[in-house]
Design a protein around this nucleic acid. Structure first.
Length: 602
RNA sequence: GCCCCUGUAGCUCAAUGGAUAGAGCACCUGCCUUCUAAGCAGUAGGUUGUGGGUUCGAAUCCCGCCAGGGGCGCCA
């Protein structure tokens, strides 16, 4: 926002350094800490250190301070800059407060929902996420994946990337067949009512089937032979699926659709609009096709003549002497494909059909090795996009009693947590939100409950594991989603009372003595565009989650300490109303990027 | 055996080379006849696992060690 002033000053600094033969490194600007005023700061330690290394006998900190002081004199006065100071090796430039506040507020009011949006980067990115296996219910671990992926997609899109959202559900595999087998054998023709009930029922069948198919300790010969008979039936079913048997395929499609209906409903609740669906079952044929090409190119080695598989010795092909990517298999000795094969075929499709420049995989960190192998093979294959494939790994979500396990039925379902969240919000809403109209309660309870859950998932860095504690995830106090939503609601409340919609907000000047809370609030608002870029560049929704809390915190403090409607001075009142409108807008934009809704009242 | 991640306040987590390591929870103290108390203000809490190194400057980068988690040819 002060780019012009910054450029003028940079030019002066460069000129001075060139004249005096001071080796200047790159100028890095940052906000001035602890000042309670706005400004930017740069330091001269790097320049002084370069001089020291060149043989000058100097103390680096003292020399940095000396340079800063000289430059301070050189700069003199610049329009829009109220004062310049040199302290501890830093050069601090303070902006004129009224001018700065006016620029920030005017820009946000003019941009509205687009405040913070980055210029188009002319680069297409695909984010792959929200991909549970079908025939299972959606649990809280899937929720972490989906929320992380959606927040990331929103961030990169708002930052200026052309963005495609893709889901790649695992709709086939032994687990899926196990459910088909048990359904067909014990529950044929049954179908519970309700999208989520039906999905959860399939999960129950899976638990039962696993118990029947897993070897038990001390099992009797009769139990053993029954189990083996069941297992043979299951394998036969898998063979029939593979052969395209109509009965098995129809059964599979019907039950798969049950799962997909449930998944689509959850995506609807989470406000996720997927652009592309890739199904694992569809990747099988293309996967087989790429194997011959990889052999022909000398990337893969065919050991089938020796009774082996088709493999890629990744380290050897890359010319690495130390083991890093190791070796992986593309085709089993029986000729069937693997996860890696399908992922390679899918990547090819992303590059060639969707013209993706960057490809982000939001996948459990335990698959890190697998994806590194896939990216390495894509590079060997000659795809330049391989360098811009990125695995956004995240730690897994476990329960206080241990890891979640679908096959043992030990999972916490997303839908159950959401229902509980709504119950809890409704319970406190009558007490804390008496202004909430009766007919809106359910809707607002969902927004707040979901806000709490979503924020708890985004407020932890993705490299960390989460032990899911429902009381923590649904907490409404402190550093939480509802805390941020509440700041939005309070801002909205002031504006409603003032009956001053942003569109016809009267102009005002910030030429009065600003309260420190106003200074802090404007400071944070002005940082929003940079925060968008940082979060998108680092692929880290956490950056935005932290920012949103800080912004809400600044607003709550402002709200408490600074009167808006009760101010006598007309100009001050008008200026503060504009500031409230701008804070509301920025909180809304931040929440939107986090996939958290902003209720008007709560 | 090799590779990856994690270790920061009692607990859960921020801060990725800069000025004084920050929040929340829990604990304690104040603040609702005043724009919504799902809030605000304050007290207290730290040899950043450990030992070296690089640097003017290290929680952050490098090396060793300790502790916990995850992964490593026909699962996904």
């Amino acid at each position: 926002m002060f780019d012009q002033e910054q450029q003028i000053i940079e030019a002066k600094i460069r000129g001075f350094c060139a004249q005096n033969e001071i080796p200047l490194a790159e100028l890095k600007w940052s906000p001035i800490p602890f000042s309670g005023e706005w400004g930017i700061s740069t330091s001269f330690f790097a320049a002084a250190a370069l001089e020291a290394r060149a043989g000058k006998k100097i103390q680096v900190p003292q020399r940095a301070q000396e340079i800063a002081e000289q430059i301070k004199v050189q700069i003199g006065s610049v329009d829009g800059i109220s004062r310049v100071e040199a302290v501890k090796g830093y050069l601090n430039l303070y902006f004129e407060t009224s001018e700065y506040a006016r620029r920030v507020v005017d820009e946000v009011l003019a941009s509205g929902a687009d405040f913070g949006r980055g210029a188009s980067k002319n680069e297409r990115v695909m984010v792959e996420y929200a991909q549970p296996n079908t025939h299972h219910s959606f649990h809280i671990g899937h929720a972490r994946n989906t929320i992380l992926g959606e927040a990331l997609a929103r961030l990169v899109q708002f930052a200026g990337f052309d963005t495609i959202r893709a889901s790649y559900p695992g709709d086939i595999g032994l687990g899926v067949i196990t459910i088909l087998w048990a359904y067909d054998k014990f529950y044929k023709g049954q179908e519970p009512q309700g999208i989520h009930e039906r999905g959860q029922w399939l999960l129950k069948i899976y638990v039962e089937a696993t118990a029947l198919l897993e070897p038990k300790e001390n099992e009797t010969p009769a139990e053993k032979s029954r189990r083996e008979a069941y297992d043979a039936e299951r394998r036969e079913m898998y063979r029939k699926w593979d052969a395209g048997d109509k009965y098995v395929r129809d059964l599979w499609l019907k039950t798969r659709e049950w799962s997909l209906e449930e998944l689509r409903d959850i995506l609807r609740i989470l406000n996720v609009k997927m652009d592309v669906w890739f199904f694992e079952s569809d990747a099988d044929e293309p996967a087989k096709e790429i194997v011959d090409e990889l052999i022909a190119r000398g990337i893969a080695d065919d050991e089938r003549p020796q009774g082996g598989a088709v493999i890629v010795k990744i380290d050897e092909k890359l010319g690495l002497t130390k083991e890093k990517y190791r070796t992986n298999i593309l085709l089993r000795s029986d000729g069937t494909t693997l996860y890696l094969t399908k992922d390679l075929a899918l990547a090819k499709q992303k590059f060639e059909q969707y013209h993706v420049d960057r490809s982000i995989y939001v996948v459990d960190v335990r698959q890190s090795m697998h994806l590194q192998q896939a990216f390495a093979i894509l590079k060997l294959w000659g795809f330049p996009q391989a360098d811009k494939c990125y695995h956004l790994g995240y730690g897994f979500v476990s329960l206080p009693e241990g890891a979640m396990s679908a096959r043992r039925g030990r999972v916490v379902l997303f839908k159950d947590v959401l229902d509980e969240a709504i119950r809890r919000v409704l319970a406190v809403e009558s007490e804390k939100g008496p202004d909430v109209p009766e007919e809106d309660r359910k809707k607002i309870a969902e927004q707040i409950g979901l806000g709490a859950l979503v924020y708890s998932m985004l407020a932890v860095d993705n490299s960390r594991d989460i032990v899911f504690d429902i009381n923590e995830a649904l907490s409404f106090d402190g550093r939480t989603g509802p805390y941020i939503q509440n700041a939005y609601v309070r801002a909205n409340s002031i504006l409603k009372k003032a009956s001053a919609p942003p569109a016809n907000m009267p102009p005002a000047t910030f030429d009065y003595e600003l309260d420190s809370h106003e200074v802090q609030l404007i400071e944070l608002i002005s940082r929003f565009p940079d925060t968008v870029q940082q979060a998108a560049n680092e692929y880290r929704p956490l950056v935005m989650a932290s920012y949103a809390y800080d912004l809400a915190n600044a607003f709550h403090s402002f709200y408490h300490a600074v009167p808006v409607l009760q101010t006598d001075n007309e100009n001050v009142r008008a200026a503060r109303l504009r500031l409230v409108a701008v804070a509301k807008q920025t909180i809304a934009n931040a929440l939107r990027l986090l996939d958290i809704q902003a209720p008007e009242v709560m």
